[in-house]
Amino acid sequence: MKNISVGKNVFINSCCCFQDQGGIYIGDGALIGHNVILATLNHDLNPNKRDILHTNSIEIGKNVWIGSRATILSGVKINDGAVVADGSIVNEDVPSNSVVAGVPARVIKYIDK
């Protein structure tokens, strides 16, 4: 796991796909559901340069819960305590203690503490 850093008490369920060339950082206490995809690569948008790969890391904070079949795209930071709903596609940073859902994922509520 050269490009993946996993904290303490992390649970990663089955059939996940971690494409890690850009680096993946998973904080303590994170829960990652079935079939989650973490993708740190993008191809260039220019059709003549599609062979060029752009890497960017994914950061998952402490006590984050990512639901089954969610996809987290490169460059995204999911801040502490956040929840990503099943099947969501996350293409921008997720605030702490928020719940995001949808395609693309958007904040649907904040978690009271």
Rank of each mutant, 00 (worst) to 15 (best):
Q21W: 05
A85N: 12
L41F: 05
G75W: 00
G61Q: 05
S14R: 05
E59I: 15
L73C: 14
I24E: 06
N9P: 07
L41G: 06
I108D: 05
L53F: 15
I58E: 01
D86I: 14
K77Q: 14
N35S: 05
I60F: 06
K8T: 13
T71Y: 04
I60Q: 14
Q21E: 09
C17F: 09
V103H: 02
V99L: 09
G67K: 01
V90A: 13
L53P: 11
N56Q: 15
S74L: 08
H43L: 03
L31T: 08
L31H: 01
K62H: 11
L73R: 07
A70K: 06
D93A: 12
G67P: 00
G81W: 06
T71P: 09
A105P: 07
N42D: 12
D44E: 11
Q19H: 02
V76K: 12
F11E: 12
I52F: 01
E59N: 15
A70Q: 00
L53K: 13
V64G: 05
G7I: 01
G22R: 04
I26D: 01
P95L: 10
T55K: 14
K113F: 03
P95K: 00
I58W: 05
P47I: 07
G75L: 03
Y110W: 01
K49A: 08
N13R: 00
V103R: 03
R69D: 11
V64N: 00
G87A: 06
N48P: 04
I32L: 01
P104I: 04
Y25H: 15
I89W: 03
I12K: 02
L73F: 10
A30K: 00
S68F: 01
D112E: 00
C17S: 09
G29C: 07
F18W: 08
D28N: 06
V10Q: 02
V99I: 15
I60E: 07
Y110C: 02
G23I: 07
C17A: 08
D20F: 04
Q21D: 00
D80G: 04
I4S: 05
S57D: 13
G29T: 04
G61I: 04
S74W: 05
N42E: 12
S98P: 03
I58G: 06
G23N: 10
I26K: 07
G27Y: 02
K8A: 14
E92G: 13
S57M: 11
T55V: 15
N91A: 09
D86T: 13
H34Q: 03
K49R: 14
F11W: 14
K113C: 04
A70P: 06
G27H: 02
C15Y: 14
D112K: 00
V99K: 03
N35K: 04
S98Q: 00
N56Y: 12
R50D: 10
C17W: 11
S74N: 12
I37S: 10
A105T: 01
G81L: 05
W65R: 11
D93V: 03
C16K: 02
V103W: 00
D80T: 09
K109H: 07
P47S: 01
V83A: 10
G33I: 04
V6M: 01
M1H: 14
S5V: 15
D44N: 08
R69S: 13
P104C: 11
